[in-house]
Every structure is written in structure tokens, then in C-alpha cells.
């Protein structure tokens, strides 16, 4: 089976389902399940359809979160970020047959691709194209308008402060906090040692805290 056929057969809609409920997807690989993930990746590389589906199920929520945190909302929606996340998952699947385990966590491979896709999206004019939302078939189970607005404002504030961090610190915080990568995995994505990640995240959090404090005083 070709990769395209695999993609067409198993690639579900990125935004169907509850990202927040995908608790297994919050962290890609804790130390306890890293070997399981490595086995899963190995099977997926060999074309095992079940392994590919399972791998994708673990990856997708984290990739969606990463793209949402980096790209933000357009007209109040995450259409573009989710679209890019879908592209990342497809690109990962397409590249899977060429993946070779060189001892680095699979996350570094995935988020390397994600980082490039997000950069491409930021460079392009794709953000000007805003799809319209379908009319819902039933009652909206999401938060109410007031809660949505408050959350939106706070999240945008967080993005604004993050955008003022040095690029490496911003990427580090998003990978660690939003996507849920470990210090080791984040270090592999960014080319840093785990110790350097811990130092940088400490500085980044202190800087965020200082910026937020300054704004509250002003």
C-alpha cells in the first residue's frame, strides 16, 4: 500500500473530537512509554496500518495544540491552525517510510516538520482565507459566549507576551507546555541539552512573569 493510500484511508479530520479529552496525547512520550512508542514507530515505518493509526492518534492532539499556539485564531477560529496541523500529520505519514531511528525521540522528527509547516504558514498569505463555519446540527456543547471571550482574551494576551520572548524561548515554552514534550524531547527538537532546556525555560518563565507584572503596574 502506498503512503498516499494509507493517508487517504486513515487520516481523520483534525478537529473532530475533543482535543482536551485526549489525555494520552498531552505527552508524546513519558519515560515509561518511550520504548512502546519506539516499537510503535518501528511498526508504522514498516507500514503496519494499526500501528500507523495508533501513532497518529498519539501525535495529532499534540500537533494541533502546537499549531494553535503558534498560529493563533483567525476571526475567532482555529481553522487555519487546524488546517496546518492536518498538513503536518499528512507530511509525517508521507515521510514515515523514510524515517530511520537514530536514537532521537520520534517527537523531534514530528515537531521538526511541524515547525517548518508553521513557518511556511506564517510566511504565506493563507491567513487571509477564512473558511466559514457550518451551521451546527444540534446544541453547542462548548463554553458559553462570556467564557469564550474571557478565555480568548487571556489566550491572546499569553500569545502577545510569548511573541516578545526570544524565538528559541518561545518555541521551547510552546513545545514544553502546550505540546507536552519532555525536556529531553524539546532539547532534541531545538538542538539543546536537557539541562540547557531547563535553564532556558526558567529564564523564559521569569521573563514572562516580569512582563506580566509590568503590564499590571502600567
Amino acid at each position: 500500500m502506498t503512503t498516499c493510500a494509507i493517508v487517504a484511508g486513515i487520516m481523520p479530520n483534525v478537529t473532530e473530537g475533543c482535543v482536551a479529552d485526549a489525555k494520552t496525547g498531552v505527552r508524546l512520550a513519558t519515560r515509561s512509554d518511550e520504548s512502546d512508542l519506539r516499537d510503535l514507530t518501528s511498526l508504522a515505518v514498516q507500514g503496519d496500518r494499526t500501528a500507523i493509526e495508533s501513532l497518529l492518534g498519539q501525535l495529532r492532539p499534540m500537533v494541533v495544540r502546537y499549531c494553535r499556539a503558534r498560529l493563533g485564531r483567525v476571526s475567532g477560529h482555529y481553522h487555519i491552525a487546524d488546517d496546518v496541523a492536518q498538513e503536518v500529520c499528512i507530511a509525517v505519514l508521507a515521510a514515515l517510510p523514510r524515517y530511520r531511528d537514530m536514537g532521537r525521540p520520534f517527537a523531534s522528527f514530528v515537531f521538526g516538520i511541524a515547525s517548518h509547516k508553521v513557518a511556511d504558514a506564517l510566511r504565506s498569505s493563507v491567513r487571509s482565507a477564512v473558511p466559514t463555519q457550518d451551521l451546527p446540527d444540534g446544541p453547542d456543547q462548548g463554553p458559553g459566549p462570556e467564557e469564550t471571550v474571557v478565555r480568548y482574551i487571556e489566550a491572546e494576551h499569553a500569545r502577545a507576551l510569548l511573541s516578545r520572548l526570544p524565538e528559541n524561548q518561545r518555541e521551547l515554552i510552546i513545545l514544553r507546555v502546550v505540546s507536552g514534550l519532555s525536556a529531553e524531547e524539546t532539547g532534541n527538537v531545538l538542538g539543546m541539552s536537557p539541562g540547557a532546556v531547563r535553564v532556558a525555560q526558567h529564564r523564559a518563565l521569569a521573563r514572562l512573569r516580569a512582563m506580566a507584572d509590568m503590564e499590571s503596574i502600567a
Binding site: 478537529t15 482535543v19 494541533v64 499556539a69 451546527p136 462548548g142 463554553p143 487571556e154 499569553a158
Partner: peptide
């Protein structure tokens, strides 16, 4: 702020065709 960001990116979206 980081909690607000994670809450926001985690939230459920329905009926969005991608």
C-alpha cells in the same frame, strides 16, 4: 497566562470541516 493558553488550544471544536 500559560494556563489560559493551554485551555484555549485544548478546547473542543465541532462541526468544522477541514
Amino acid at each position: 497566562l500559560l494556563r489560559a493558553l493551554t485551555d484555549d488550544v485544548d478546547q473542543w471544536l465541532s462541526s468544522v470541516s477541514i
